[in-house]
């Protein structure tokens, strides 16, 4: 069986995202018809249903869509930029530095003084992370320098996060830190949407602008440059776009791993491995994956408050091992 054409694949994924988005609005402890709830009052829709829909489920569904999308998109861009199938947004250290910002806000008690201190501090954390990355990687276009700089930032941010946990005298703060780091979309409001989605959109535009350069990079950086690609611009767009988008996403959801690794891999064979075509389908695939994982939590264990980051990691880690084996077999 041949692979589907690009328009058919894109439309199919788009349809899937729309269905999952509507299901995300409908599914929960109370089943609600989202169309009635969103587009005016039918007699059957009570005021309570509308409140649940607009204030609880709509922000959660929008965040699932946007965060899944940016994670899938940035994973595809970073794999193309680094020409490494194991690259994902976490490799740049943005998730870890956003987490550190959030942890500092919890540790210092800022979150008790101001409700939205946590996502704002996480955004500052991500910003600090990208500045450090640009400082460490400098003007070099060398891939290895970039990866090692990301690893160094991740290690430093993780160590400081551990230090905060270690020194925290308040067990509730420690618990809050741990729960936040597990990643979740529960209890997010429209304020979280307004804080993160505009930045995710800005990051997405920057990431999409690298599409053609990533195609040329398939032939190596020398050929890409000889074809007229501005490598410095491409690298900056990819790093800053990832930092802004994934930083904003992590700021409101906590760390959600593996989406950026798995989704581009699953979809790559369906687009003939062309990096530029992988970007839109990975964004749609990431959105579908995260919406589906969030629905899974609500349907399978509604009473357990299972964290989204835990579910994506449980699916992602075995996939990662499978990927390593596959690559090793190819190398051997």
């Amino acid at each position: 069986m041949g692979r589907p054409s690009f328009p058919i694949l894109t439309m199919t994924l788009l349809g899937l995202v729309v269905v999952l988005f509507l299901l995300s609005l409908a599914v929960g402890q109370v089943w609600i018809n989202p169309l009635n709830g969103l587009f005016g009052a039918s007699d059957n829709v009570t005021r309570v249903d509308q409140i649940i829909l607009l204030q609880i489920r709509l922000p959660r569904a929008i965040l699932g869509l946007a965060i899944g999308g940016i994670l899938g998109l940035s994973g595809a861009v970073l794999q193309g930029l680094l020409r490494n199938p194991l690259a994902e947004p976490g490799v740049m250290g943005m998730s870890a530095s956003a987490s550190l910002g959030a942890v500092i806000a919890i540790y210092t008690g800022l979150t008790t003084a101001f409700a939205y201190a946590l996502p704002i501090a996480a955004l500052f954390g991500a910003l600090f992370g990208v500045l450090l990355l640009l400082l460490l990687a400098g003007r070099s276009t060398d891939v290895l320098t970039l990866i090692l700089s990301g690893v160094a930032i991740t290690s430093l941010a993780s160590a400081l996060t551990s230090l905060a946990l270690n020194l925290s005298s308040n067990p509730f703060a420690s618990l809050e830190i741990v729960f936040w780091m597990l990643g979740s979309l529960t209890d997010r409001s429209m304020v979280h949407v307004w804080l993160s989605v505009p930045l995710i959109l800005v990051g997405s535009v920057m990431l999409f602008s690298t599409a053609r350069a990533l195609d040329a990079l398939s032939l190596g950086p020398d050929v890409a440059r000889s074809l007229g690609v501005d490598m410095r611009r491409t690298r900056s767009m990819a790093i800053v776009g990832t930092a802004v988008g994934v930083g904003a996403a992590t700021a409101v959801s906590g760390t959600i791993g593996f989406v950026g690794l798995i989704v581009p891999h699953l979809l790559r064979p369906l687009v003939g491995s062309r990096p530029s075509r992988l970007l839109p389908v990975s964004a749609l695939g990431g959105a579908a994956f995260l919406l589906a994982a969030d629905l899974f939590i609500r349907l399978v264990m509604p009473d357990k408050d299972l964290k989204l980051g835990v579910v994506t990691a449980i699916i992602g880690a075995p996939f990662f091992l499978w990927l390593l084996r596959k690559i090793r077999r190819r190398v051997v």
């Binding site: 195609d215 398939s218 032939l219 190596g220 020398d222 050929v223 074809l227 007229g228 003939g272 062309r274």
Partner: peptide
């Protein structure tokens, strides 16, 4: 410059499993 000079470096790799036509089409980028 790319429209006037074409370059084949020593490093001859194609990093992803691209179709032959897609590889050749990359030459049209400039």
């Amino acid at each position: 410059l790319a429209r006037r000079v074409a370059f084949l470096p020593q490093e001859r790799v194609v990093h992803w499993s691209l179709a032959v036509r897609d590889v050749v089409m990359l030459g049209r980028m400039p």
